[in-house]
Amino acid sequence: MARLAMVIDTTLCVGCADCVVACKTENDVPEGFCRDWITEQVAGAFPSARLEIRSERCNHCDHPPCVGCCPTGASHVHQPGAVVLVDKQKCIGCKACIASCPYDARFVHPQGHVDKCTFCVHRVEHGQLPACVSVCPTRCMHFGDLDDPESGVARLLRSRRHHELLPAAGTGPRVIYLT
């Protein structure tokens, strides 16, 4: 079973937000909302302070609490690829999934349903990369199947130091950052 994942090289990301603009354009994200965003984290003290720039979005978690808590089944794991999606024909806008996401990756779309990153599954199923990955000028974003040991993402994770966000939350995020 495929487990699609995104691996992002924070040593290359310059925080240009091209990924954010590409997502908004591709997915018609309403004004004032975003499915992906740029986070800058400064840690430590001079002279050893460290800046990490990350392109963040829904982590399409292996154990997504947003799916289990959904009372209508609108939040679901789409196969193949184990991508976490929201069926807007079923979503009543109860916001349980929003409260259950430790990454605050979801929001209420002005049309009433909950919205978030889809890993551009509509593109991926036609052999294309997610919009954000395809436009990145530094080519810091990689996309592929974690369960395929020969995929680019699996090889990168074998060879590079990496971390995920909020590992203690235990959700098994599949957006992973190379350091």
Binding site: C34, I38, E40, I98, A99, D104
Partner: peptide, 21 residues
């Protein structure tokens, strides 16, 4: 120091979650 800044500004989510009124 550990300082985080984000470009995310989703209504009802940022700066503090307020999904339920």
């Amino acid at each position: 120091m550990d300082e985080i800044t984000s470009t995310r500004h989703n209504p009802g989510i940022d700066p503090v979650l307020h999904a339920w009124g």
